[in-house]
Measured scan of single mutants.
Amino acid sequence: VKKMAKAIMADPNKADEVYKKWADKGYTLTQMSNFLKSKTAGKYDRVYNGYVIHLD
């Protein structure tokens, strides 16, 4: 998940494709939050927020 999150950060155009894969795998927002937690607070906030919007 972190590898794909980094791919989104490097190229935001990949976001919809990645979010669809995550949704197809049934990842919940709680799971995504836990996967994307980082020592650098807020590092993956943009990715998480994008997934929230995708699921909505």
Rank of each mutant, 00 (worst) to 15 (best):
V1N: 03
V1S: 02
V1P: 07
V1L: 07
V1H: 03
V1T: 04
V1M: 06
K2P: 02
K2D: 04
K2I: 12
K2L: 12
K2H: 06
K2T: 06
K2S: 01
K2Y: 05
K3T: 09
K3H: 10
K3F: 10
K3Y: 09
M4L: 10
M4F: 07
M4D: 15
M4Q: 15
M4T: 03
M4I: 07
M4P: 05
A5T: 03
A5L: 08
A5H: 02
A5E: 01
A5S: 03
A5W: 04
K6F: 09
K6A: 14
K6Y: 08
A7M: 15
A7H: 07
A7V: 11
A7D: 11
A7L: 15
A7F: 07
I8P: 02
I8T: 02
I8A: 08
I8Y: 04
I8S: 02
I8K: 03
I8L: 07
M9L: 15
M9R: 05
M9C: 08
A10T: 08
A10F: 08
A10L: 13
A10N: 12
A10H: 11
A10D: 14
A10Q: 12
D11L: 04
D11E: 08
D11S: 07
D11G: 01
D11M: 06
D11Y: 08
P12N: 06
P12I: 08
P12Y: 08
P12A: 11
P12S: 09
P12W: 15
N13K: 13
N13R: 14
N13L: 12
K14R: 12
K14Y: 09
K14F: 09
K14T: 09
K14E: 05
K14C: 13
K14M: 14
A15H: 04
A15F: 03
A15V: 05
A15K: 07
A15D: 01
A15W: 04
A15T: 06
D16Q: 13
D16Y: 14
D16A: 13
D16M: 11
D16P: 13
D16K: 11
E17V: 09
E17F: 10
E17D: 10
V18M: 08
V18Y: 10
V18W: 03
V18L: 06
V18T: 09
V18A: 06
V18S: 03
Y19D: 00
Y19R: 01
Y19E: 01
Y19F: 10
Y19H: 02
Y19W: 02
Y19N: 00
Y19V: 00
Y19G: 00
Y19T: 02
K20F: 06
K20C: 04
K20I: 07
K20Q: 12
K20R: 13
K20A: 10
K20M: 09
K21L: 15
K21V: 14
K21A: 15
K21H: 13
W22L: 02
W22Q: 00
W22F: 01
W22N: 00
W22C: 00
A23G: 05
A23C: 09
A23Q: 11
A23V: 07
A23I: 05
A23K: 09
D24W: 08
D24Y: 09
D24N: 11
D24H: 10
D24A: 13
D24Q: 13
D24P: 00
D24C: 11
K25I: 14
K25R: 14
K25M: 15
K25V: 12
K25H: 11
K25A: 15
K25D: 10
K25G: 06
G26E: 06
G26N: 06
G26I: 02
G26W: 04
G26D: 03
G26V: 01
G26S: 04
Y27V: 05
Y27N: 00
Y27D: 00
Y27W: 07
Y27K: 00
Y27M: 04
T28Q: 04
T28F: 01
T28W: 02
T28N: 07
T28V: 01
T28L: 03
T28A: 03
L29P: 10
L29Y: 05
L29W: 03
L29D: 04
L29N: 04
T30F: 13
T30D: 15
T30E: 14
T30H: 12
T30W: 11
T30K: 13
Q31C: 07
Q31T: 07
Q31G: 00
Q31S: 06
Q31L: 07
Q31E: 11
M32C: 03
M32H: 01
M32N: 01
M32Y: 00
M32L: 13
M32F: 03
M32G: 01
M32I: 15
M32T: 00
M32S: 05
S33T: 10
S33Y: 14
S33I: 08
S33A: 14
S33C: 11
S33D: 09
S33N: 10
S33P: 00
N34S: 13
N34W: 12
N34G: 11
N34Y: 13
N34D: 14
N34A: 12
N34Q: 13
F35Q: 04
F35N: 04
F35P: 00
F35E: 04
L36D: 00
L36M: 02
L36I: 02
L36E: 02
K37E: 11
K37I: 09
K37T: 10
K37R: 11
K37A: 12
K37S: 11
K37H: 12
S38V: 08
S38Y: 09
S38L: 07
S38D: 13
S38N: 06
S38G: 07
S38E: 05
K39Y: 09
K39G: 14
K39C: 11
K39H: 13
K39A: 11
T40L: 08
T40N: 09
T40S: 09
T40F: 09
T40A: 09
T40C: 10
T40P: 15
T40Y: 11
T40V: 12
T40Q: 12
T40E: 12
T40M: 08
A41Y: 10
A41H: 13
A41L: 13
A41T: 12
G42D: 07
G42L: 06
G42P: 02
G42Y: 05
G42N: 09
K43G: 04
K43H: 06
K43S: 04
K43V: 07
K43F: 11
K43T: 06
K43L: 11
K43P: 05
K43Y: 12
K43N: 05
K43Q: 09
Y44S: 01
Y44W: 09
Y44H: 02
Y44C: 04
Y44G: 04
Y44V: 01
D45Q: 08
D45S: 08
D45V: 06
D45N: 08
D45I: 06
D45T: 07
D45L: 08
D45E: 10
D45G: 05
D45F: 06
R46Q: 15
R46F: 14
R46N: 14
R46I: 14
R46H: 12
R46Y: 12
V47L: 03
V47Y: 05
V47E: 03
Y48Q: 04
Y48V: 07
Y48E: 02
Y48N: 02
Y48C: 04
Y48H: 03
Y48R: 01
Y48T: 03
Y48D: 01
N49E: 14
N49D: 14
N49G: 08
N49L: 14
N49M: 15
N49F: 14
G50T: 01
G50M: 07
G50L: 05
G50I: 05
Y51F: 08
Y51K: 01
Y51G: 02
V52G: 07
V52K: 15
V52E: 10
V52F: 06
V52N: 04
V52I: 09
V52R: 14
V52M: 12
I53V: 13
I53T: 12
I53H: 14
I53M: 14
I53L: 13
I53G: 06
I53Y: 09
I53D: 11
H54Y: 15
H54C: 04
H54V: 05
H54E: 02
H54S: 05
H54I: 06
H54P: 00
H54N: 02
H54M: 05
L55E: 01
L55C: 06
L55T: 03
L55G: 00
L55S: 02
D56H: 14
D56A: 15
D56S: 15
D56C: 15
D56Y: 15
